[in-house]
Design a protein around this nucleic acid. Structure first.
Lengths: 233, 233
DNA sequence: CCACAACCGGAAGGCTTTTTCCACTTGCGG
DNA sequence: CCGCAAGTGGAAAAAGCCTTCCGGTTGTGG
């Protein structure tokens, strides 16, 4: 079919005149294409990904036919519109891995992603469903997922993340957060951060590390015997 | 407990076999009304409250006109269909208040309600939106809410519920849970309980009560002074 | 048993959104 | 500057849902 040439130029903006393979678009067509993407970005962010295609076309100032010619299905449009947001999403996981403190990286990542959901309703939708046809999107999602697994391992190693935490728990949080965002829409914007704070708290292992480290058992035994350190055999 | 149908011969005056006021229905009409409610109950539970009215009519084995004649708006149907579920919901708060252990009552209530959401998608929808025209529903919701406030107070008094917990946090949980349920649909039914368990954990105050109660401060002062109990002035 | 009001089911009208089609316009290579 | 394929906008068809309307049916009181 198509899509194999999606390899194109994976760098975000400033793409060549060709959208994703095939013949280059005429300049006016390319201009319209950008307008559509820009309009869709705004509209999806504000209303979610279920807005009528006609609304996107109107916002872009083009005819419906133009939109459908360029993006035959909604998924095609989503793939183009959320390319850079998904890139940010994947980068967030990478940046989190670069954090010195794995726990800090882990919680920061969660907060970042959930906040991205809260400020972009369309993105919240994207993160809680799959679009097999949106190959670019799914590839970035896979990358973020892979990095997140590593993030989990490191966070667990610090002992701050509870050992029974699962990558699926992040999925649950994303779906829960999406539910809160969808229900509160524009009102009560503090709901989502509150949910996230609660969940991060729940993800935290019972804090053993707030206590100073226990004394050496041997030293303790000696102390109980009233022996001085240097007197031990 | 209460009657299954909205016969409601005890709480709403003057109902009898008639839907809500007006003249009594003819027996065949009443039979169809019950069929519609039964079909809607099943359909809403499985698919949510946004299913086409025609689907409900088909499931009930009646014409669309019959449905609309009896329930002119969707809210009218919701009011009738979820009357008993809402009653169970309100009763759950009351039962929770009757629990000897307020914390147990509190957590049990949360688990019950969230599990009701999970097993009934329509009810999950109902709990996260308002239907001004569905007076019966809203009245029951208000009752449950009132009892829940009392439940919060008592749970806080035990020290097990964190002091900064708010009734709004329950709303957030309901919306979050609805999001998880909507996204997991029929698959992954263990997601919702997992979310709930995490949240209850987060609602728990830093466990001070696992320690034995502190000694009387006065007694402690005396002890530090090396005074015996009976020697105090 | 009869008359009639209540009731019934499905067709039809109206609205929204998706998808296709077509006559007209325009960038661009020659 | 010209020809034409690529491109465009809007109309129209298709599909789904809500709501109303209407000719025919049926329970029920007299």
């Amino acid at each position: 079919m198509m899509g194999f040439m999606s390899s194109a130029d994976h760098d975000t903006p400033g793409q060549g005149p060709c959208p994703s393979g095939g013949a280059p678009l005429r300049v006016d067509a390319e201009r319209n294409r950008e307008r559509i993407i820009a309009a869709a970005r705004t509209t999806f962010a504000a209303e979610g990904i279920d807005v009528p295609m006609s609304a996107v076309a109107r916002a872009a100032g083009v005819g419906i036919a133009t939109l459908f010619r360029r993006f035959p299905t909604r998924e095609d449009l989503l793939d183009a519109v959320f390319a850079d947001t998904m890139h940010t999403y994947a980068d967030a996981a990478e940046k989190a891995l670069a954090d010195r403190d794995p726990w800090n990286g882990f919680t920061g990542y969660i907060r970042t992603v959930c906040s991205m959901q809260a400020t972009n309703r369309g993105f919240a939708d994207i993160l809680t469903m799959t679009f097999p046809a949106a190959t670019h999107l799914e590839e970035l999602r896979a990358r973020a997922y892979h990095d997140f697994l590593e993030l989990i391992d490191r966070a667990k190693a610090t002992g701050r993340l509870r050992p029974d935490f699962t990558d699926q728990d992040m999925v649950i949080l994303l779906m829960a957060n999406a539910g809160v965002i969808a229900a509160t829409a524009h009102a009560a914007p503090e709901s989502s951060p509150r949910l996230v704070a609660y969940m991060i708290q729940a993800f935290t292992a019972p804090q053993p590390e707030t206590l100073p480290p226990p004394p050496d058992p041997d030293a303790l035994a000696h102390a109980m015997l009233g022996l001085s350190c240097d007197r031990s055999p």
